[in-house]
Amino acid sequence: MSLDEASQPRLARGFRLRQDAARGRTVVLGPERVFEADETALATLALIDGERSVATIIDTLVAQYVAPRAEIAGDVLEMLADLVERGVVTS
């Protein structure tokens, strides 16, 4: 369950990303769980597919957002580690 830049995370079985039209947002749905995804989370979750490495995901986000790589890497790793701990993401 340790996660680093070489990991290839994906949503755990039973979790999926969905538009929530009634509330104008995107959510991650899981068993008895509804997580609201903010913009950063969404950008990351849209990229995880079990193939892309965390390093690739970070590089993609660095190209999209105006922020230093170290900062984005810190945010992404922290968020993914948290989601792994909650069982939403597997790596």
């Binding site: 509330r23 959510v27 008895e32 769980r33 509804v34 997580f35 609201e36």
Partner: peptide, 16 residues
């Protein structure tokens, strides 16, 4: 009980 409280249990993040 989960069905008793299907979502109250389940919204650690927001949504309420």
């Amino acid at each position: 009980p989960s069905t008793q409280d299907p979502l109250a249990l389940s919204l650690p993040e927001s949504a309420t």
